[in-house]
Nucleic acid binder design. Structure first.
Length: 281
DNA sequence: AGGCAGACCTGATTGC
DNA sequence: TGCAATCAGGTCTGCC
């Protein structure tokens, strides 16, 4: 579900709510949500940040990581339905599919909080790492550069050398990390480029427009709290507001806001794809 | 190389 | 109201 703007909102919420809190305890309700590969992972799994103080809140593309003061890191991929939930003592709910539940404590006030990893569809996962550098070397450096933390030249070079459609290329996390189905369609509409255009044949002008549109839309979406289509909620239970700004995604058959033409919809690489045949060439 | 179908899952929505 | 079919912000594998 969540793309870069949604994950960034989760990161910011965790940062503002959990920084400086101590992980006191964790309850593991489903061990198989932890995907750590190494044999010694079990030792790390058994503690899962417990005893550490939350100090780092990182994101690369759609991936998220929590770091504690002794260096340990937990990496999260939210998949389609992964959710982080922060609750205070007074407001505890009984969540279904709550696979991991931490208790955190404020060293100054003594207040306690719960952090819940919930993932009904279980397309997401959690990885335990000894430190940020190891995670970066083995995981984050292997995926593409972050869509927001990217130079135009690097974007251009990556897109130019593939013969796939531009939409497929934008969705490829190995090229550029963070863009998913919503924001790929939205960026291509704003840039005026059809999703099936071959990446390697795009003009400089078009590549620049796609780059700019991507960055602008991701930033606008972050500021709007992301897009809530069915189920996205930030850690405090809030919904995104960017879905009302969508120009094409989820608007098949409705008039284009710009020219009034009916928004088209098709399937590209198994993903529903929406575009305007007048605004996009 | 790249397109495509299918697999992994549950839940919300749609249509009869 | 109920029940089945369809669809979903994501990856991954394996086949042509």
């Amino acid at each position: 579900m969540p793309e870069l703007p949604e994950v960034e909102n989760v990161r910011r919420d965790l940062n503002s709510s959990l920084e400086g809190l101590v992980f006191r305890d964790v309850k593991i309700h489903r061990l198989d949500v932890i995907k750590s590969p190494r044999r010694d992972a079990r030792k790390r799994v058994s503690s899962l940040l417990v005893g550490g103080t939350a100090t780092g809140f990182h994101r690369h593309g759609k991936r998220l990581a929590l770091e504690v003061d002794d260096g340990r890191v937990l990496e999260f991929s939210l998949g389609m339905s992964g959710q982080m939930i922060i609750e205070t003592e007074e407001r505890e709910s009984n969540w279904t599919h709550a696979h991991l539940i931490w208790t955190l404590e404020s060293p100054s006030s003594g207040d306690s909080h719960r952090l819940i990893w919930r993932d009904p569809r279980r397309f997401g996962g959690v990885w335990a790492w000894p430190d940020f550098e190891t995670m970066f070397a083995r995981k984050w450096s292997q995926i593409g550069c972050d869509a927001l933390n990217m130079k135009y030249e690097s974007f251009r070079d990556r897109i130019r050398k593939t013969r796939r459609s531009i939409k497929t290329a934008l969705l490829d996390q190995g090229l550029i990390a963070g863009i998913g189905n919503i924001y790929a369609d939205e960026a291509l509409h704003r840039a005026g480029v059809r999703p099936r255009r071959m990446s390697a044949r795009l003009r400089r002008r078009e590549l620049e427009a796609i780059f700019t549109a991507t960055q602008d839309i991701l930033l606008e979406a972050i500021e709007a709290g992301g897009s809530t289509i069915q189920s996205f909620k930030d850690p405090k239970g809030g919904e995104g507001r960017y879905q009302s700004a969508h120009a094409v995604y989820g608007r098949s058959g409705q008039p284009c806001h710009h020219c009034g033409t009916k928004i088209q919809s098709t399937t590209l690489n198994g993903r529903t794809t929406c575009w305007c045949r007048e605004c996009q060439k």
